[in-house]
Amino acid sequence: MKRILLKRFPVLYRARVAQLRVMRRCRDLLPGTDFAEQRAMDAPFVLKRHQSLLRRRLGSSDPRLQENKVTNLRLAAARVDGICIRPGETFSFWRLIGRPTAGKGYIEGLLLSQGEVKTGVGGGLCQLANLLYWMALHTPLTVTERHHHSFDPFPDDRRTLPFGSGASVFYNYIDLRFHNPTDRTFQFRLWLTDRHLKGTVSCDREWPLCYHIEERNHRFLRQNGRNYRQNEIWRKRVDRGTGRVVGEERIIGNYAEVRYELPEGIVPEEVESVEVREVSAKLPGSGS
């Protein structure tokens, strides 16, 4: 009922967003969390490198919005590039980037809002959040806050990561946060080329483990006349010296409505109900 009211009455939605933003700012003022702010070193031991295409075919969306997204990503990446997460510190996506406004140079881009694909200033920053989250999964950093999109808006187009392995962000209460529980310092580096958003995550000392991420139990389903997509994301911890797997964990469970025509040859499995575990709740708001 709350979601329906917020969608039907925009003034209520805006008031709720404003309330959540104030609540987030107030919580962040409380003692107990040391946020990462320093860029004082170049960590020499690279744990993970990754890149993502800047321009992909996203349904029937205006290609100009892809170019606008590149502008937004360039501005936001510069605010995060070089950040060091020292022992006991917490990385916060929005505390580093700040509110993406036109006055700061951000322009219209694609974002997901209230279950729909829309446009808005600063749209497209989820691609940066996706990259940071994927790299963080290859470190011992603890993910303390991560949100996911509530639906699958576009068919796969040169997708290299498993479905549902990204992160949704919306200033400032839908954040992406990592905590450093170790005695090492970690650092993110980010840059753009003509074709890619690129990044690395490094450590100031060699870390004894590496991490392998894999998708399991992926399937398309049909329930009550609608198509859905489901999978699980697992992480294996591997000893760098011996190559032996020393542990594994299920880190994400995804179940989302598909908002596009399924590719030819994919026949969804008809189901009456689906058991979904450990899917993070989506707070009222949007995701770029």
Rank of each mutant, 00 (worst) to 15 (best):
G243M: 01
Q114L: 13
F9P: 07
A15Q: 12
N254V: 09
D157W: 11
A129H: 09
Q230M: 14
A136T: 12
N217C: 13
A43N: 07
I4R: 13
R24N: 08
R158Q: 13
Y211W: 15
V238M: 14
I174W: 00
R56S: 01
Y260R: 00
I4M: 13
G59E: 03
V80I: 15
N130H: 09
A281K: 07
T182Y: 06
T139I: 10
R74G: 01
R226V: 11
T101E: 09
N254D: 06
T182K: 10
P100L: 11
G166P: 02
V279F: 13
C26Q: 14
L141E: 03
V46I: 15
P10Y: 06
E37N: 05
E67I: 00
R189M: 08
V201I: 15
M41Q: 12
V271T: 11
G98T: 06
D194T: 08
K69I: 00
R21L: 11
G247C: 08
P155V: 04
A36V: 05
S202W: 04
D183E: 13
Q127W: 04
S202D: 01
Q127P: 04
T71C: 12
E275I: 12
A167R: 02
R259P: 07
D156Y: 03
G253L: 06
L137T: 03
L58A: 03
V22Q: 14
Q51C: 05
D34I: 12
L209A: 10
T90M: 06
E249Y: 12
V267M: 12
G166K: 01
K69F: 00
P263F: 01
Q187P: 02
L132Y: 06
Y133G: 04
T200V: 13
R229E: 11
F163S: 05
G253Y: 02
A129S: 14
H212M: 12
E278T: 08
L125H: 03
E215K: 04
E37Q: 15
R21T: 14
A281W: 08
H218N: 05
S286V: 02
V258E: 10
A18S: 14
R226F: 11
E145M: 12
S202T: 13
G122T: 09
T142Y: 08
W94F: 11
R177Y: 10
F93S: 01
C210S: 15
R25D: 13
R177S: 10
Q187E: 13
I174A: 06
R158F: 08
E261H: 07
L132H: 01
P63C: 01
V22H: 12
E215Y: 08
D62H: 09
F9M: 09
C26M: 14
E278L: 08
V271R: 14
K7Y: 05
L96I: 04
N72P: 01
A76S: 06
G115W: 09
G124P: 01
I107N: 00
L221D: 00
A36C: 06
L128H: 02
F163Y: 14
F35C: 04
E264T: 10
A78Y: 03
N254G: 03
V169H: 01
G265K: 07
N224E: 14
W191Q: 09
A43E: 04
L141R: 07
L30D: 05
L53S: 06
A136L: 00
D34L: 14
V274L: 06
L137A: 09
R277W: 10
A77R: 00
R235G: 12
E249R: 15
H149D: 10
P181R: 09
R229M: 05
R25P: 04
H196N: 12
I174E: 00
G265A: 05
H149S: 11
L197N: 03
N130S: 00
L5C: 05
